[in-house]
């Protein structure tokens, strides 16, 4: 039995096509501006002089990010009305019938997974396509990725398959929330800090 579902994201394979983002919007019929999965474009660097020659020092990679259904969901701990709960299989839910729309969880989540939905006047977020999972299917983001950069499964299995890296620049310290997320870093991620990389597409995410 699965005790904690999680996502695997291969940053080295992601091309930034945003098919995952759009598949999620399509499946969940999300309003414009509401994104449960987002693709961040991280870029930095420029030119640097090596010897007598100027060479490009650009770093650039993408991060596809949704709710990480954390083992320690700080959004749920912060919610004053206990509207955010965790299933036995680790999936974290927002009960829109109980949410008062105070939006405090938006601040509590370091992954900015919770988004305000003006249709329901509550926060909303990735629900791991739980109905598809319960029926033996696959989350739409995972199914839609043409690069196979996303995978899902039980965290114990994912760790065996992919290792235990849970943080690349500029993600927060995983100790904050124990995210159910495994990452294969892009090679540029190691140089992102020294090359002053930052998210380049705020308007999109």
């Amino acid at each position: 039995m699965v005790t904690q579902y999680g996502f695997f994201f291969n940053a080295a394979a992601c091309s930034g096509c945003k098919a995952c983002q759009m598949a999620c919007k399509d499946r969940n019929d999300l309003e414009p501006g509401v994104l449960w999965r987002r693709v961040y474009e991280v870029t930095g660097g420029g030119w640097e002089k090596k010897g007598g020659v100027w060479v490009p020092s650009v770093v650039s990679y993408n991060i596809s990010m949704a709710c990480n259904h954390c083992e320690k969901p700080v959004c749920g701990l912060a919610c004053p009305v206990k509207a955010i709960t965790k299933r036995e299989d680790g999936i974290v839910f927002v009960d829109t019938g109980a949410c008062i729309g105070c939006r405090y969880c938006e601040w509590a989540c370091p992954y900015t997974a919770l988004r305000f939905d003006a249709r329901t006047n509550t926060v909303s977020k990735c629900n791991f396509c739980y109905d598809a999972i319960d029926a033996g299917g696959t989350p739409s983001c995972v199914a839609s990725c043409p690069q196979r950069a996303l995978d899902f499964g039980d965290m114990a299995e994912l760790r065996k398959k992919y290792g235990d890296v849970r943080q690349i620049f500029p993600l927060p310290d995983p100790a904050q929330t124990e995210p159910a997320l495994i990452i294969k870093p892009h090679r540029d991620a190691a140089r992102a800090v020294e090359r002053a990389a930052e998210v380049a597409n705020w308007e999109e995410v």
Partner: peptide, 22 residues
């Protein structure tokens, strides 16, 4: 006024155990 469901505001004391907002 900052609640989008103010009529549910009476539930805000439900999570005194872990929520500083409560």
């Amino acid at each position: 006024f900052h609640l989008h469901h103010p009529f549910r505001a009476h539930h805000t004391l439900a999570n005194l155990r872990s929520s500083w907002l409560s």
